[in-house]
């Protein structure tokens, strides 16, 4: 397995996602001899995982069972160990599309954070692209490097431990796209501009607060960026369920004399006992949902 290439069979050293049911999953690094405890019992890697097909059902010691899934950036996003606040799939999807990422793209990112977006970028730009990611927090940068290695994508990424606002991305004129998720993105616009190819490219900045967006847009305009556009995308998850709506009881029909004729015609309509109900299948939004993650500001750097 790798995060940029599917494989069929689970092997030693793979990361697999154990699916326990209803939004409950855990990532596991497969090692022969190792064991993983779940609420359904223990999973023995050598016998239960290695050599099995991704997507198969694994019976645990207590008789319960789980599915073992091939890792994807999307599954990783909901399972990764948080070192920072992370970007989720909805925003990532829009960032990827609006930055026009595809195989071969060269991308700059800062900060690396927990690597949620990084994995998604790597998936999209493989096998010929490259990600230059900058993280000023030494321990986080170290952890990211280690994770990229474990996930067999380290040949596609360079992690730099420096301050993007002061030192930039460490490259010049080779990026197709730049992504910023830092507290003061306006301080990094100059560096972003010089990182992007002469023939131009795209930039995106993610900020939770509108004041940050305001300053970023001003900076982008000052640096000659075009097509500046700020948007926000929210995901609504619908809960599919069957609901039962009882019909109210209006009591026995009073003026039976006048309705006599009608009821003669439709006899079977009459027995309207109090407890009838209508069953219907519907999808309802959850009681509470994420109302705001951040504003996404996009722009194009024109050709020099």
């Amino acid at each position: 397995m790798s995060f940029v290439e599917y494989s069929e069979i689970i092997q030693e050293g793979d990361v697999v996602i154990i699916f326990l049911g209803h939004e409950s999953m855990m990532p596991v690094m497969v090692q022969s001899g190792a064991q993983t405890q779940t609420r359904y019992g223990v999973i023995r890697h050598s016998s239960d995982l290695i050599g099995q097909r991704f997507g198969s059902k694994v019976t645990c010691s207590k008789g319960g069972w789980v599915y073992v899934l091939h890792p994807t950036p999307e599954l990783w996003t909901v399972n990764l160990p948080h070192r920072t606040q992370i970007l989720y799939t909805t925003d990532i999807a829009n960032i990827t599309l609006m930055l026009e990422l595809k195989p071969g793209s060269v991308v700059c990112e800062s900060g690396t954070g927990s690597g949620s977006l990084s994995h998604s970028i790597l998936r999209t730009i493989a096998p010929t692209g490259h990600l230059h990611t900058v993280e000023f927090h030494a321990q986080r940068a170290e952890k990211a490097i280690q994770e990229f290695k474990e996930h067999k994508v380290s040949h596609l990424v360079t992690v730099r431990n420096q301050d993007v606002c002061k030192d930039g991305f460490g490259i010049t004129g080779i990026a197709d796209a730049v992504f910023l998720d830092i507290p003061s993105p306006w301080e990094a616009i100059t560096h972003a501009k010089s990182a992007i190819k002469c023939k131009g490219g795209r930039i995106c900045s993610f900020s939770p607060c509108i004041e940050q967006v305001q300053r970023t847009c001003e900076a982008l305009l000052d640096h000659g960026f075009e097509e500046i556009c700020t948007l926000e995308v929210l995901l609504r998850v619908h809960d599919v369920r069957t609901v039962t709506l009882p019909s109210p009881d209006f009591g026995p029909e009073e003026d039976s004399r006048s309705s006599q004729v009608a009821s003669d015609l439709s006899q079977d309509e009459v027995p309207n006992s109090g407890n009838t109900s209508v069953i219907c299948r519907t999808a309802t939004p959850p009681r509470e949902m994420a109302g705001h993650t951040g504003y996404l500001t996009f722009a194009t750097k024109p050709r020099d």
Partner: peptide, 28 residues
């Protein structure tokens, strides 16, 4: 909704999610 129900009956798929998204542009 029908697809969702059918898949749940038949099995062979997990992590089913029915979603839509909401897009808002800003003048800055």
């Amino acid at each position: 909704i029908e697809c969702y129900t059918k898949l749940r009956e038949q099995g062979g798929a997990i992590s089913l999610r029915l979603t839509d998204s909401w897009l808002r542009h800003y003048q800055v």
